[in-house]
């Protein structure tokens, strides 16, 4: 079962940046890439729980601000040689530019 919630507009997320959504399941990071794709991850680095929302976004990755692990935005997977996953959530942008988040369905930890 999905449960889509309105979060903000695309403009409210900086390009190559992120916003944090406070939710019952903890903080969720919503990222915006250079070509306006939007991704959502739990704001919790698989290494030591660093807030991924505070990292530097490039291509489809974010570099964790704590110790520099690189996490794939679409998969939540850490880049080699590191191993681990942040869990992903479904997110979409409608024609009006509104960002929606499915807070029910955690897209299970994606295979590496």
């Amino acid at each position: 079962m999905s449960e889509w919630k309105k979060i903000c507009t695309l403009d409210e997320i900086p390009s190559l940046g992120a916003r944090v959504v406070k939710s019952a399941q903890g903080d969720i990071a919503i990222f915006r890439t250079g070509n306006d794709e939007v991704f959502a991850l739990h704001d919790h680095c698989p290494h030591k729980g660093g807030p991924l929302s505070q990292g530097i976004v490039a291509g489809k990755t974010v570099t964790c601000p704590m110790h520099g692990w690189k996490i794939g935005l679409d998969s939540g997977a850490a880049e080699a040689p590191d191993e681990g996953h942040a869990s992903c959530l479904q997110v979409k942008v409608d024609e009006a530019g509104v960002v929606w988040l499915d807070i029910k369905q955690i897209v299970a930890v994606c295979a590496a």
Binding site: L16, I56, A58, G59, T63, G68
Partner: peptide
Amino acid sequence: TPNGCSTCRP
């Protein structure tokens, strides 16, 4: 790369 990385951009 389209937008560099956390090494070159800063």
